[in-house]
Design a protein around this nucleic acid. Structure first.
Lengths: 145, 145
DNA sequence: ATACATGCAAAACATTTGCATAAGA
DNA sequence: TCTTATGCAAATGTTTTGCATGTAT
């Protein structure tokens, strides 16, 4: 398992490779993703970054998030209501388990998923590039309330 | 397998049960969903309905789609870019296979999915209410081009 | 020095809402 | 008749864009 510091360096290197400049805002946004385990929304990242960097604009957060998405260093979790959320720690497709009450997102372990992808590819003739699997339900805490 | 006419009647009955009125606009919108196998977007439904009902407004399409969603007679397929699409023929959660080039959506058959849901529920303690599974790839036709 | 990134404000989008009018039951 | 639905326009919320200024390299 890579340390957060190593992953920060990797992302910074990848940005440089793509001809991008390393600005304090970008570093702050990346750090926010790496230090968060809550799958933050854009707005949430914006709030966090402003704590240490009050002049940062929302537009810059959007631009940086799109950049990180393009170089596959964060994963976008699409919500039907438009409030997308992001995962900077596991930027590859993986399932999510979302509590519809408190909006918590966790990453369940699923063994069967790769088989499933292969099955679909063979049956359909599609070249599968990516997938998205979300479970919606009520988390143990919210069930008690 | 139910005929399209039967399903139209079922939906109309369900609307009545919920105290809703049956307007020509609503019938036209429902028919558009039932006659389409392309998982249409709101905009697409609007265009289709206007062919036979030119005065229909986009707001009415939105309101009716939300209504049908609430009574579980259409399924919303969430897209990260905000352009959601809908399935009126199979209004229960099921996987989709989406071509990222031509945006076609098809419904692959998957045997393992129920097992998978049970697995996640047991391991996490969540009460799973719904799920969403999308595969993204290139369809056979687009691979040739 | 010279691109590129930032921050602001305006624009672009999709969706929702308020309200007067039309129309189902 | 009486309540709900429609259609328009305005409002909302999110994301993108244009551009002058600032800054990384």
């Amino acid at each position: 398992m890579k340390s957060s510091q190593d992953r920060l360096n990797d992302i910074v290197d990848k940005l440089r490779e793509n001809g991008c400049r390393i600005t304090p805002q970008r570093v702050a946004i990346i750090k926010t993703f790496l230090q968060s385990d809550e799958h933050p929304s854009i707005e949430r990242v914006y709030e966090q970054v402003k704590v240490n960097f009050p002049t940062t604009s929302l537009a810059t957060v959007y631009k940086t998030v799109n950049l990180l998405k393009e170089i596959d260093e964060i994963l976008e979790i699409g919500f039907a209501d438009g409030r997308n959320r992001y995962d900077g720690n596991k930027p590859y497709p993986h399932p999510h388990l979302i509590c519809t009450k408190c909006k918590a997102i966790m990453d369940p372990d699923i063994s069967l998923l790769d088989q499933l992808t292969t099955e679909v590819a063979q049956a359909s003739g599609y070249r599968i590039l990516s997938h998205q699997l979300e479970f919606f339900g009520i988390c143990p805490d919210c069930q008690k309330k």
